[in-house]
Design a protein around this nucleic acid. Structure first.
Lengths: 204, 204, 204, 204
DNA sequence: CATGAATGAGCTTTCATTCAT
DNA sequence: AATGAATGAAAGCTCATTCAT
């Protein structure tokens, strides 16, 4: 198993095939064909079909988590971080549509057993939002009566549903950036503390 | 009618089985067993396995849409309608956990062909939110720079992600009502127009 | 699973196919074809391919054990029982050549796990010989310094090797009855006690 | 010779692996691993997997035949030769358990095509017994009404079944030497001519 | 209308064998 | 000569669907 490159080729092929047909309607042989390898070769790099999806999440989602963290470091302001999260998230999805499709569509489908595996990086991703919310609360910018654990899911859910729509719809009605701005704007205003609203008006 | 009753029994069985194992990991024979009918009987009422899921959505979702419309009519105030939507949505999900699970988990998984069928009642459901947002904008309560089509998805997505978490998690950390209140509160404050904020303070 | 007859048909087909190609070189689809059923039908009656072989042994060998016991009851004399065992054994094998082939050839090949299952009726069969030897010893006809557990295997092995040769060879050099007589004769004379040799001359 | 040495290493590995799992449940890659060579290397020394087993028999069985012949030469007396055959056979099996296991278990399993190859040295081995029987008959020690071809199979079968039991059973009930003595003793007494019994009493 | 045994297409996965290095 | 990654044919098994009863 010299060829780390081949593993990557298979994962890329899997993203494409899964995004087109969904996990359960995808055939291992289609992935092999798309990756220009023999069916058997897949099994040199992955234990089984499930393992392809799991690896996809662990590795690709891992990268995304890393990139997101890097993107947010630029902004010291938690409120701006929220906006940036939205922009970055939807930009990732729009740039890697197929990956986005697999993420958004497939995360929820697999058997509950698989969900455990998949959830790890996913929860990590969600917790980026949670950290920002907590940071905002500590700095007095976000209302303390809001539960960070609820906010992280609400915000992610809002973006994710939007992304799914955008990715699946053939004619893109709304600009994806516009959606990111509107959604983050609503969340920021909605979560802002009273003091912040006076001293630190939004939009900046 | 004996007929209609058996069809219903099958659909109820399908909800249970799909919610436990997911569509692709459910066997037609399991649904038959759960419904206390023979495998073949299923095919007297449904064209095929896909048709069971499609019918599930059309019929069960249809009821939900109807109930939601009825629930919102009680409130003339668009902002309160938003809160009520959240409360009702999460209450439906928590009361009919299995159906909620199927809705949340399965809507997104099936082949794109099926999605079209499933989408119809789903879009209708989303458009309830859209109408409320438009109504709010017309009454000057909601900012006019927000796109109703984006808001409907963002709000639904926020609630849905929360519902999914709540439904799948074994130990329910957050009260589902609390989540509904916080999420709707953030959206209402976030979407409110400047004038409304002065004349019509939130929470009421 | 109404049709007990169909199960039997499959087992008969399996005997034929296994005897021709050996267990590992037999295809489930070949058995299905030979039995005039669909591939899937096999799995309504048997858990898997292994289960076919296991069932074959449990059921067919069971019958043989029963028949052998019945055959031996006719003779009160242990020495004559030994001869009859040989005659009956080789006659079973020669009449049901294919079954004999599967028995002789396949018993020893399967994984050690399977062997346990298969061994049960086999040991039972061997123990028929053991009982006869013990009976002979009690009656003073067979030397007491011979271990019944060794004799049972030696005698069975002698017959079995002969049967295997006879079954596999295309041109049958030796008459199978002649072989049965010679082998049992050698064992009887060889195991006889000194007193028996005087009072109870062999052949009778 | 480096070459011949590697070939030998592979055969030794094959004996080990085949004896543990059986031919069909053994993987070529396992043999390669056990022999510390690459998978592909095996195919420099053997045509295919079947060829490994065939070579095993031809070469290892060949040695055994040679050793057995040498062992028997020490005894001029055919009856003693029979006893020595039993002792030597079971001692070989007990000393080279793994090889014995492969011999006993695998000889009979492979496809009929393979059997032809395997049978050659096997028949040769059997014919050692045959020669002894004939020699015994010529010297008037063994009854002339016994067919040497039947006796060779019966005697070998008796020993082989014992060996198989001894090799496969984890707790060895019977001493292997004791078994060899008892079995050969029964055969010798059983085959002895009347005159020999008087002039040449057994045991010597 | 209802049944459930039977079907067989089609899937994932394995593994003996090859061949570029 | 030696390697071991790559191959792809082939097999066991599943399960949606049918249809004789």
């Amino acid at each position: 198993m010299k060829d780390e490159n081949k593993r990557h080729k298979i994962l890329q092929a899997a993203i494409k095939v899964f995004s087109e047909k969904g996990f359960y309607n995808s055939r291992v042989s289609e992935i092999a064909k798309e990756a220009n390898v023999a069916d058997g070769t897949i099994y040199l790099y992955f234990r089984n079909k499930d393992d392809i999806l799991i690896s996809l999440f662990e590795e690709e989602f891992g990268k995304i988590v890393k990139n997101m963290r890097a993107a947010l470091e630029k902004d010291p302001d938690p409120l701006k971080k929220i906006r940036r999260f939205a922009m970055t998230h939807l930009s990732i999805v729009s740039k890697q549509q197929e990956l986005g499709e697999v993420m958004g569509v497939e995360v929820r489908q697999s058997s509950k057993f698989m969900k455990e595996y998949i959830n790890k990086p996913f929860i990590e991703y969600l917790n980026i939002i949670r950290s920002v919310v907590i940071e905002g609360q500590e700095k007095g910018l976000i209302r303390k009566d809001l539960t960070p654990g609820i906010m992280k899911r609400a915000f992610f859910g809002a973006l994710d549903e939007m992304a799914r729509y955008w990715v699946l719809s053939t004619q893109k009605k709304h600009s994806i950036d516009d959606a990111a701005l509107q959604i983050s704007d609503v969340f920021i205003r909605g979560m802002m503390s009273e003091e912040a609203r006076e001293n630190y008006p939004w939009p900046p």
